[in-house]
């Protein structure tokens, strides 16, 4: 079980770096979607000994929401805005890749000094969550296009979800269901906002939002 878990989380951490290193928005959106699917499968791995229909339903809902619905809406917003590339990030691709890699390594190295439960200590679970949250922050801070920032927000949410899975035995998984619903509605709203920004400013560059506009 731990091997599958570490493999899934390791792949998700690899997708982090893909998201940080690419300038193409479709690649970024697909990386975030694939990451959502990988993490959506985690409850099945974590609770493999006690599967029931509710768990499977929630896994299916997470995978469908993060892997199909949200990327579909983001790609639609991207097409509507007519942009496919992030051209002038605040933090360049190489610095953000190195920052992300440094953060990932620091997260893995620091796990030894955290007071974790014995069943979490030997896995990539906690460092994975920390790396995802950090990557989300780097994307949110470092990119100028609204869609990239939304992707950063999604990676951040993936990290929080991963951290939440630590408590899978003590919190009802319904809570995660509620969070997922919130995120979906959030992306829906952001999709509309992106469209409005595009119409009002003829650009998705969030730097222009600081200037007054008629």
């Amino acid at each position: 079980m731990n091997d599958t878990l570490s493999l899934l989380i390791g792949l998700a951490m690899g997708l982090n770096l893909l998201a940080l290193g690419t300038s193409r928005l479709p690649v970024l959106i697909r990386a975030v979607a694939a990451q959502g699917v990988l993490l959506g499968l985690l409850p099945l791995v974590l609770e493999a000994h006690a599967l029931d229909w509710r768990l499977i339903l929630i896994t299916l809902a997470t995978v469908a929401g993060k892997g199909l619905l949200i990327p579909y809406m983001l790609i639609r917003a991207m097409r509507a805005a007519g942009i496919a590339r992030e051209l002038e990030p605040f933090i360049g691709y190489i610095p953000s890749l190195l920052l992300g890699a440094g953060g990932t390594i620091a997260a893995v190295a620091l796990i030894r000094y955290l007071p974790l439960l014995p069943e979490h200590a030997g896995t990539l679970h906690v460092p994975g969550a920390m790396a995802l949250i950090l990557t989300g922050f780097i994307l949110l801070i470092g990119r100028t296009k609204a869609i990239s920032q939304v992707c950063g927000y999604l990676i951040l949410e993936n990290g929080i979800y991963l951290a939440g899975l630590l408590l899978i035995r003590s919190t009802p998984i319904l809570v995660e269901f509620g969070i997922l619903l919130d995120v979906t509605v959030g992306i829906f709203v952001i999709g509309i906002i992106v469209d409005r920004i595009q119409r009002a400013f003829d650009s998705l560059d969030t730097r222009k939002l600081t200037a007054l506009h008629e």
């Binding site: 570490s6 190195l98 890699a101 893995v108 190295a109 796990i111 990539l124």
Partner: peptide
């Protein structure tokens, strides 16, 4: 090239950290 370097760096970390 940075990506290539990172692909070499992560095995180093994996080896260094032992069996995680």
């Amino acid at each position: 090239l940075t990506i290539g370097f990172l692909f070499c760096l992560f095995p180093l970390i994996l080896t260094w950290m032992g069996d995680l």
